[in-house]
């Protein structure tokens, strides 16, 4: 959701109107798994840096199909993560289990494709333009205020 996400973050998240949760969907086997693991291990060191890596991975999405461990380690370092701590996490089965667990939960919720957006309990599919997002968000905010 990199296309409209920056604007949604600026106008709705930073203003306190929306809490945004990124829920990983692992529909592309190991590249999906290790890209998500990279973001999670960086986020464990600093949750703010999760969103930095999130943006880096989506911006370089085309590289992820061929990415190896070194690529993800360099990505973590570029985001400001401690290399040793990251590698410890990246190689840890516990962190991998957590990522896989999140994927199981979304399947249990009936989330099959991506991207999918649960906005105040209603699930929307696709990647609509910002205006469509704003319309739904505004309606949800109004409902929440009543």
């Amino acid at each position: 959701m990199l296309g409209t996400e920056p604007q949604v973050v600026q106008e709705y998240v930073q203003t306190g109107k929306v809490k945004l949760i990124f829920w990983p969907v692992l529909n592309h086997n190991e590249p999906s798994v290790y890209a998500t693991l990279t973001a999670h291990c960086v986020g464990r060191q600093d949750p703010d840096k999760f969103w930095d890596v999130h943006e880096i991975l989506f911006t370089n999405q085309g590289d992820l199909w061929r990415a190896d461990r070194d690529y993800f380690v360099n990505t973590a370092i570029a985001a400001g993560a401690d290399q040793a701590a990251f590698e410890l996490c990246y190689d840890d089965q516990g962190a991998l289990a957590e990522v896989l667990s999140l994927d199981d939960i979304r399947l249990q919720r009936g989330i099959a494709g991506q991207p999918m957006f649960d906005i105040a309990g209603t699930v929307y599919g696709g990647a609509p333009p910002f205006e469509s997002f704003a319309e739904v968000l505004d309606a949800s905010l109004q409902t929440a205020a009543e």
């Binding site: 709705y12 109107k17 809490k19 829920w23 692992l26 529909n27 999906s32 649960d118 949800s140 905010l141």
Partner: peptide, 9 residues
């Protein structure tokens, strides 16, 4: 309002 973004990298 909470938004859950189900996405794959």
């Amino acid at each position: 309002v909470t938004v859950i973004d189900y996405s794959d990298f």
